[in-house]
Simulated assay, not measured.
Amino acid sequence: MKSWYLLYCKRGEQQRAKLHLENQNLTCYYPEVEIEKVVRGSRKAMNEPLFPSYVFIEFDEELGPSFTTIRSTRGVVDFVRFGGLPTKVPDTLIMDLKKIEIHNEAVSTLPKAGDVVQVSGGQFSGFEAIYKESDGEKRSILLVTLINQQVRVPISNKDITWDRDK
């Protein structure tokens, strides 16, 4: 009977491991999430792994391939184990992850309106400001306090830093 297992892969080689595992007729699941990032000053939607360095695989351990064959696959380090044996992952977990992935909306790594940001470059370098809104792909409008008044100032996205955890 087929069961799901979790593999730990070499850093950045999940795609390679998935390809080589699929060549062995194994079912692989590599959940990704779409996020929005600022890359070189412009917004880009990118897919990133939900669990970096991990790939789920489904196979029947009696029919093969063997655990050793799977561990020897390019990009794979080892199975996630508890007590020395590869641990089975519940089918319900995989189904839940797939549901979440289907209903995924882009997660923004950009500040939200009202977030306090630091200006790290340009003429307002060192100033603390309030993020107001996006101004196209490469700039944002910030509220900078000058002489006790908040002024709307367009600033390049690459010159904005903020604490993402707040």
Rank of each mutant, 00 (worst) to 15 (best):
L6T: 04
G136S: 02
M1L: 12
H103R: 09
I155A: 01
P52R: 07
E105I: 00
Q14K: 07
V119C: 01
K112W: 04
G122Q: 03
P31T: 13
F56D: 02
L143D: 01
N23R: 12
Q15D: 06
I94P: 06
K138A: 04
T73R: 08
V107D: 08
E22P: 05
L110T: 07
M1G: 15
H103C: 07
Q123I: 03
Q24R: 15
C28I: 11
I147Y: 06
P31L: 10
Y30R: 11
D60Q: 10
K44G: 00
S140W: 03
E128I: 10
I100E: 11
A17T: 03
S120R: 05
E137T: 03
D60Y: 14
N47G: 00
P90T: 10
K99M: 13
K18F: 00
R71N: 15
Q15T: 06
F56M: 03
G84L: 07
Q123T: 06
I35Q: 13
Y8I: 13
I94R: 04
N25D: 01
N23D: 15
E61L: 02
L93R: 05
H20S: 14
E32Y: 10
S42K: 07
I57E: 04
T87A: 14
D163L: 11
F82M: 13
E137P: 10
A106M: 08
S66F: 08
A106I: 14
P49T: 06
L143G: 03
L6Q: 05
E101Q: 13
R74H: 14
P49D: 13
D60P: 09
V117P: 01
G136I: 04
V76K: 03
G84R: 05
S156E: 08
S66C: 07
H20L: 15
L26Y: 05
F56I: 04
L26A: 09
P65W: 06
S66G: 12
G41H: 04
I160K: 09
R16T: 15
P52H: 12
L50D: 03
Y30Q: 10
V80Y: 10
R16G: 02
G83P: 00
E137V: 01
F59P: 01
R16W: 08
S156N: 12
L7H: 07
P65Q: 09
Y5S: 11
T92E: 12
D78C: 14
R11K: 08
F82P: 01
R74N: 12
H103A: 11
I94E: 05
K158S: 01
I130C: 09
R11M: 11
S134T: 05
V107E: 12
Y29W: 07
D115W: 01
I94M: 08
R81V: 14
G121Q: 07
E133H: 01
Q118D: 04
F59L: 07
V76W: 04
N23Q: 15
P31R: 15
I155K: 01
T87K: 10
S125Y: 02
E133V: 00
T87D: 02
P90E: 10
C28G: 08
Y29C: 06
V77N: 09
V144K: 00
L21Y: 02
G83I: 04
G64K: 05
R40Q: 10
K112I: 06
I57Y: 10
